[in-house]
Amino acid sequence: MKLLLKIWRQKNANTQGKLVEYVVDHVSPDMSFLEMLDVLNENLVDKNEEPIAFDHDCREGICGMCSLYINGRAHGPQTGVTTCQLHMRSFKDGDTIYIEPWKANGFPVIRDLVVDRSAFDRIIQAGGYVSVNTGAAQDANCIPVSKQDADKAFSAATCIGCGACVATCKNASAMLFVSAKVSQLALLPQGKIEAKDRVLNMVKQMDTEGFGNCTNTGACEIECPKGISLENIARMNREYLVATLSSEK
């Protein structure tokens, strides 16, 4: 396969970025999208040009490091996959592919296709945890949890924090991420103790980081590689409403 790539290049957060065209040849349909970029970078290094910076780590869809806005969609044209799980067989020989970083006020560009997602870490620090007393751990079976709640909490916990929800949202809203992190704890008995403070603090941090509001377009749910449901956003809306009306803070 021979492809024309239009890739966003930006030196750092303070400089203007622009799309730069590259041609990459001998691309196998069995390559992952990131392997195709590896090939391009090897070619650039051979020509003494600056390779393209992009995020990646596990390359098996579980770490949440890879990103990329490919042909106008977060993680490319397939649903339910991260960019590292996207294969070049999803494209045709001679295709033009636009590759851009996540663009959001809360995710400043560090270089080229790499963005700073530490805003998500600060949101987690604001309340995405459960306080546990020290001492010997009690038997897990002492705390009854219904299978249904356990499954819902697990589904919410599959969020890998990649930021595709923010990238794809027309308002660059982080509601799907924050709601998944609120839900995974709010659904379980261990998380109920701090539930009110958690949702208030996490939403406050989300707003401070400059993410937009939710318009319920549902784009995030479709683009999320882990299929996190909008049900979580509704749950967070309920949690926040109750906490707003009843918290002493």
Binding site: G72, E100, K170, S173, G212, N213, T217, E223
Partner: peptide
């Protein structure tokens, strides 16, 4: 809200395909 939402993405995408994942009505309220 619209003003805030626009400020949340100061740099627009060069190429975007929003119709792949949301309805026209929801985007153009």
């Amino acid at each position: 809200l619209e003003k805030q939402n626009r400020a949340a993405r100061p740099q627009k995408y060069a190429f975007s395909n929003p119709s792949a994942n949301s309805t026209w009505m929801s985007r153009y309220m």
